[in-house]
Design a protein around this nucleic acid. Structure first.
Lengths: 212, 212
DNA sequence: GCTTGAATGCTAAAAATTTAGCATTTAAAG
DNA sequence: CTTTAAATGCTAAATTTTTAGCATTCAAGC
């Protein structure tokens, strides 16, 4: 079964809708690690990532962090504040210098009403994200830690555009993302390295291309 | 943080759109356990559950079954065949006698084009489903088996409308859904019963209301 | 070229979970 | 009332994963 890949919103929009959307919002530039919003905040609006990446997660009761999603340039977030009238479900912070446009609910509604193609782009983007989330949950239950890590690395490489390059990721972040301990991640990565599938570095991992 | 609940599509539609949608499709009645479609099939269209429930899952390589989603009356499925142009991602079968309308892609597109409110209802339904899937994945990583089981039972009770009644579920199904072994589920359920939170029966579990 | 904090590597004990097996209970069918 | 297949209960060994701790390596800043 071919996996369904996340379709970012921006490339799905026609030029004029995209320009209107960006013009209708307020653009903010966040520095690396800066908080964008916190879980529970109530502001309603759609945010679109113009450059950089945004990390979403929750600090669990046990004190450990759970990373939920990593969205990169072109993606939008905050849709639940619009369509489910819900407060922010996750803490969000910037990964690297990150530019975000925030469009208020009234302006978003106006744009949606006047451009029917906008709704279609949103439907495509959300559907692909839903199926990626479902697949991720399936993997959590069905795959071994090794396989989960390989899949995560493959996804990170693709979504981050790290072709031919090392993926800048810490082992502890992999643990946060997959719900594993750092020791388990280290063990699994060492196994994968011995199998020749990855090359481990400091703060980075390289996926070794397998001949096929 | 309040959880976001699944919003079924049908109640979100205006009467005339709902009627037009149902009229545009072909209604099929499935008997308990009957296959609706299999993973990998290519037909494009949107299906809406008129009555009964549909169970989605994958038979994993190891031979074990992974249940992904359980959708009840009013919900739609097959959206990925429309918006991601993807084949069916899951095996689907009926749980109890189940009526499903299937609307072909051309007819769906026509309806979407002429009724702008239709798109909005789809956006609400998909957004709430996306956030429920994300929350489910969070729980898989952050919660103990006991807590996961309680949360699942609560959700089953609500979505199935089993107020004051026992929830008809087998322990093995809970295991499939949560990615646990049957032994672990049994142990956790026994603990929950000793704590007075549930009452176990044959093929059913009753949630004990806690005073508050 | 040091110093330093962060990240990784490593180990062993503890805890959780699965596997495999069989016994018991249940409800439906004969 | 029996029979029967399905579901649950239970046990112990095997396996996996976590926890906790400390050693080592890395790269940036002084």
């Amino acid at each position: 079964m071919d996996p369904i890949y996340n379709q970012p919103l921006l490339p799905l929009l026609s030029d004029d809708v995209r320009e209107a959307l960006i013009a209708a919002g307020r653009t903010t530039t966040y520095s690396d690690g800066q908080f964008i919003h916190q879980r529970g905040e109530g502001a309603r609006g759609l945010s679109i990532i113009l450059s950089g990446r945004v990390r979403f997660g929750i600090y669990a009761e046990s004190g450990t962090y759970i990373q939920t999603t990593l969205l990169s340039s072109g993606h939008c977030f905050g849709e639940a504040t619009l369509f489910a009238d819900a407060p922010r479900a996750y803490d969000a912070d910037a990964l690297g210098e990150t530019k975000v446009v925030e469009v208020s609910k009234p302006r978003f509604d106006a744009l949606l009403a006047e451009a029917p193609s906008f709704a279609n782009a949103l439907l495509v983007s959300f559907t692909t994200r839903l199926y990626e989330a479902l697949e991720f949950a399936d993997d959590l239950r069905a795959l071994s830690p090794d396989a989960r890590i390989m899949k995560l690395l493959t996804r990170l490489k693709r979504s981050g555009g790290f072709e031919e390059k090392a993926i800048p990721v810490r082992q502890i972040d992999i643990a946060y993302t997959l719900g594993l301990s750092r020791v388990s991640v280290g063990k699994a990565l060492n196994l994968l390295q011995r199998q020749g599938k990855v090359r481990l570095g400091y703060r980075e991992i390289t996926l070794v291309e397998t001949a096929h």
